[in-house]
Amino acid sequence: MKEQQDVDLSSHSDPSSLRSNGDNREIEAKFPLTFWETAGAFGVILGFAIVLVGMYLSLPDSDYSFLKFPRTLEDLRVLRYNLDRYTMDYTIQVLVGYCTVYIFMLTFMIPGTVFMSLLAGSLFGVLRGVALVVFAATVGASCCYFLSNLIGRPLILSLWPDKLVFFQNQVAKRKNRLLNYMLFLRVTPTFPSAFINVASPLVNVPYHTFAIATSLGIIPIAFVTVRAGMALGELQSIGDLYDIQSIGALFFIGIASITPTLISNKSKS
């Protein structure tokens, strides 16, 4: 058994050909994409575009030059000021548009979701803001998961080949406590969130485990960020979001989520 494990791990040393421990299928870098993979990716993009255009057409005629992905706090303040005028009269359109943009950003790994979380707190308050962020983040991560399962291999093998090998080994070691491990990854900055979304289907993390860990694991971070959005005018930088108390709380939650795995491994040894 030990020999078989060594053989499997040795095959991981080549980033261009990684063998899955779950069903022995190979994760290979393949590019260019097949016709159906390319069609599927464009179909997802087209779906998002149709929803966004529909939301845009349902709003009253006005100057919407402020509508763009926020990259700075100043961009966010301008966006918040303008959207606040529409939130009361066009609540449904704003909610759908917000969720669509958030999901789109996560699906295609576009940076800036922290600004969208701040915007949720500023527009909708803490409770509704956290619920909105958790919903949109879970759906967006799920879309990224399924899209990666379709076309993600060449992308992740070009960006994070070494991380993928390490992640696959860790997942294989923690099959019995995989939910705890995935919760730990969501709460702590062990891996980038985008990497977890893209890599999970390629290393055989079951979707139900992925979805539960995502929806529960992002609640603490969402709460911290959304709450900060309530005082958007007082923020000087993104670094102001995470004080010592917030970081300590997230660290404690991360340790608590992985403790059952550590205890189980110790008892087995």
Rank of each mutant, 00 (worst) to 15 (best):
V187F: 11
S193R: 08
V171M: 10
V171T: 01
L127Y: 13
K175N: 08
A194R: 14
L147P: 06
L119K: 01
S193I: 12
G129A: 01
A172H: 05
L183N: 09
V126F: 07
R128N: 08
T188F: 10
L159Q: 09
V134M: 04
P189Y: 10
G140Y: 02
N180V: 00
P111Q: 03
I151R: 13
A136W: 02
Y145V: 11
C144Q: 04
N180H: 05
P154R: 15
M182F: 12
L155R: 01
G125T: 00
I110Q: 07
V134F: 02
V171P: 02
L155K: 00
S158P: 06
L185C: 15
R186L: 01
R153A: 13
I156N: 11
Q168G: 15
V133C: 06
F146R: 02
L118Y: 02
F195Y: 04
K173F: 06
L159M: 13
Y145L: 13
L178A: 04
T188W: 10
S158V: 11
L150N: 14
P192A: 03
C143I: 12
S117C: 14
L185Q: 10
N149W: 12
S158R: 15
V171Y: 03
C144Y: 02
T138L: 04
M109W: 00
R174F: 14
M109K: 00
A131Q: 13
A172R: 12
A131N: 14
L150C: 14
A172F: 05
P111G: 10
F195W: 04
S142K: 06
V187C: 09
K173P: 04
L119R: 01
G129D: 01
I151W: 13
I110P: 05
G152H: 06
L127C: 08
R128G: 08
L147F: 12
F135Y: 08
Y181S: 01
R177N: 13
G112E: 05
G140D: 05
A194E: 15
G140P: 04
W160P: 07
L164K: 08
T188S: 11
K173E: 14
L119T: 01
A136T: 07
T190R: 00
I110H: 06
S148W: 11
A136L: 10
V126I: 00
F184C: 12
F191Y: 11
T113E: 05
P154L: 06
F124N: 06
F135L: 14
G125Y: 03
F135C: 09
V165A: 11
R174E: 15
A141N: 08
C144M: 08
G121A: 04
A137F: 07
V126A: 06
I151T: 14
G140H: 04
K175T: 12
C143W: 08
L159A: 10
V165C: 08
V134W: 02
C144S: 14
G125Q: 04
F184V: 02
F166T: 14
V134D: 04
T113N: 06
L118Q: 02
L183W: 11
A137I: 07
C144N: 12
P192M: 02
S148A: 14
L185K: 05
F166D: 12
P189L: 10
L118V: 01
M182Y: 09
M182Q: 04
A172S: 07
K175F: 03
F195K: 01
L183H: 09
A136R: 04
G125V: 00
L132H: 04
T190M: 14
F184S: 10
W160Q: 11
L179E: 02
L147A: 13
